[in-house]
Simulated scan of single mutants.
Amino acid sequence: MADETALADFPSLFSLKGKVAVVTGGSRGLGLNAASALLQAGCSKVFITSRKAKACDQAVAQLNRLPNLQPGARAVSVPADSSTLAGVESLVAQVAQHTEHVDILLANAGATWGEAFDTHPASAFRKVMDLNVTGVFLAVQKFAPLLQTRATLDDPSRVIVTASVAGLGIGATGPQATFGYSASKAAAITLARNLAVELGPRHILVNSICPGFFPTKMANGLLEMTGGLEKHAARSPNKRLGRPEDIAGVVVYLASRAGSHVNGATIQIDGGALWKTLTLQDEPVDSKL
């Protein structure tokens, strides 16, 4: 009879030692939190990309000063516009100059736009959809050859798509309505499920994460306009907003051997706030930016 207490190499279950990762939108906020976690969990290289080269360089400098990295591990700046085909192709070409394979793609780059329904511009809606949906698809499609290089049945590559609780419920409405953001994040969740089925046989697992409110540069404006940090924290069942470690833990789990049989999943990271808002009759439903 098999020993049901035996676990294969449990000490390395959450290790990313030697892995190569790409983080789009990795120069700030949740993307930078995740990039820090990937490096500290053992990645040998983490490529940081966003539109602004200076922001990428600054993020990489911060990451490379972390004290507990594996010997030789480093972050690399690869600025590119992930909302266009040319930008994604440039990104892949830059990464390919440094490595012949990628093990982890965190498709995190995102944009939002807040404006009332009657004046919500078509150009803004398209911009948000281009980055949050089309950009995700193009990134996965163009990185697929590098993701397949070392992927095996027992050690699959990973794609993690940053969606939002706004794609699971209702985003912000009113003067700062985020119609494009909410629609794009719902689309990103469904896209990730489709990609999971398509790419699973190629040994590439695809999952999405749905953060709630985290105090970041992108979210702080809406947080303040809709009651402030303390009010939003009080609405959550666990009475706080998200912390960098909350994103770090989920990303490392999905990227590591611990998550090697998780595919097509959507993980909500909001302390249960989405379900709490669905019970409120006279309060607006929260959104994450």
Rank of each mutant, 00 (worst) to 15 (best):
residue 160 I to H: 06
residue 82 S to F: 05
residue 163 A to W: 01
residue 180 G to Q: 00
residue 117 F to S: 12
residue 13 L to K: 11
residue 151 A to K: 07
residue 56 C to L: 01
residue 76 V to G: 04
residue 125 F to R: 02
residue 19 K to W: 01
residue 82 S to E: 12
residue 47 F to E: 05
residue 83 S to Q: 06
residue 250 V to H: 12
residue 35 A to D: 08
residue 126 R to A: 14
residue 283 E to F: 00
residue 117 F to Y: 14
residue 167 G to S: 10
residue 18 G to T: 07
residue 45 K to Y: 12
residue 81 D to W: 01
residue 161 V to T: 06
residue 135 G to K: 08
residue 113 W to V: 01
residue 206 V to P: 06
residue 96 A to M: 04
residue 120 H to L: 12
residue 81 D to A: 08
residue 28 R to Q: 11
residue 140 V to G: 02
residue 129 M to Q: 13
residue 220 N to R: 14
residue 85 L to M: 08
residue 153 L to S: 12
residue 260 S to T: 13
residue 23 V to S: 06
residue 151 A to H: 11
residue 34 A to I: 10
residue 123 S to T: 13
residue 162 T to P: 00
residue 198 E to T: 14
residue 162 T to L: 07
residue 283 E to D: 08
residue 28 R to V: 07
residue 72 G to P: 04
residue 178 T to C: 10
residue 43 C to E: 02
residue 226 T to N: 15
residue 101 H to T: 06
residue 226 T to A: 14
residue 232 H to Y: 07
residue 179 F to A: 15
residue 95 V to N: 08
residue 241 L to T: 11
residue 86 A to L: 02
residue 200 G to H: 03
residue 145 P to V: 03
residue 85 L to H: 10
residue 7 L to C: 13
residue 272 G to D: 04
residue 15 S to I: 08
residue 210 C to V: 04
residue 91 L to R: 12
residue 153 L to R: 13
residue 244 P to L: 08
residue 19 K to F: 00
residue 4 E to D: 11
residue 95 V to K: 04
residue 285 V to Y: 10
residue 245 E to Y: 02
residue 285 V to Q: 15
residue 193 R to G: 09
residue 172 A to C: 11
residue 183 A to G: 07
residue 283 E to Q: 03
residue 203 H to V: 00
residue 105 L to T: 04
residue 268 Q to K: 15
residue 284 P to L: 03
residue 82 S to H: 07
